[in-house]
Design a protein around this nucleic acid. Structure first.
Lengths: 175, 175
DNA sequence: CTGAATCAGTTGCAGTTGCAATTAATTTGT
DNA sequence: ACAAATTAATTGCAACTGCAACTGATTCAG
């Protein structure tokens, strides 16, 4: 009985290893040529589009996309203001980077910091009138860029499809 | 007659302005909510996926994606080598950035520079054995990342569809 | 109530990027 | 054949990023 128990335990171990290796194998098999290609094209598309749009913005003497993101998020926020950590989360930046991005935007007069009364550590970023104007000026270029480099290639069906796919990808990444 | 000519010229001007404004309007109308949403999700997906994969690589004590790109492109190239400007083009980096990326990879022993005999200005980057090994080690993590954060969300039909869309976007961006 | 843990925001530092200028070699127009 | 233009790669500089450490305020456990 003891021998059998021992053997079965060893077997179990071996079976576990085999299963694991099979799973790993099947994973790399699932990662088909097509999936790989899609991934690469995804990366390429991103680089090219961003590069192009940044170039368009620079050519129009406008600041870069990250500035737009901050201004846009603030303009949509209640009272046009947001705590710095909320802002950081919204624009997907680390706190430290956001701090310095906010510094630059503040120097440029597009936003300003505001004390938080309920938490003396905290600060709000508030978009200024200048900031709103800049947002509009940037949107002329940015919106057109999105249209002519991205949107114009997608009809209504395709856009919906793409959104569905991207939703899946981004939501299930959170785990 | 002179008066009419003047008026018609003014009218022409006004008509031109109206047409222009209509075009602009229609452009921002074409850029539907859905297209905009898709664009934002596209950006978000990119950031999240890259962040996650970079983190996985760092956690495994492996270098970053840009190193992988260079090693991969070189490993696929004839004779495992490429001129620096070709490499730059392939991995979508500016020359100057590639120069320094190559510096780092060379210091790490993963690639080496080689004189170009036909053009004394030029240099090849050649992947070393160490480089190949690193490429393999990185692929274990990277490939799994692509699978679990990206590919697993796309069935065969969807992948093809996505590739089609991305092809359109990236090819027509070149103009 | 108080000390430990957590959280908001900032800062220092090392590493990376983009842009413009530089060096050296090759190609082109006359 | 040679000066001018172009090309390959590099370098200097300023700006930007990520990470870890720090300051000060708030929360939580006992």
């Amino acid at each position: 009985m003891i021998a059998i128990a021992t053997i079965s335990s060893e077997l179990l171990h071996i079976v576990a290893i085999v299963i694991k290796s099979l799973l790993t194998k099947s994973m790399s098999i699932n990662l088909s040529k097509a999936h790989n290609l899609a991934w690469r094209k995804f990366l390429t598309a991103h680089v090219l589009l961003i590069e192009q749009i940044e170039q368009d913005l620079a050519q129009a003497d406008l600041p870069s996309l990250s500035w737009y993101d901050v201004l846009f998020v603030l303009s949509e926020a209640p009272e046009h203001k947001l705590r710095l950590h909320e802002l950081a989360q919204a624009v997907l930046l680390t706190r430290s980077n956001l701090t310095r991005l906010v510094d630059r935007l503040e120097v440029a007069g597009l936003i300003r910091r505001e004390q938080c009364s309920s938490d003396r550590r905290g600060a709000f970023a508030v978009i200024t009138d200048e900031g709103h104007k800049m947002l509009d000026r940037m949107w002329v270029v940015y919106g057109q860029g999105i249209e002519q480099y991205f949107a114009c290639h997608l009809n209504t069906t395709e856009v919906k499809f793409l959104i569905k796919i991207l939703n899946r990808i981004t939501s299930l990444t959170d785990n």
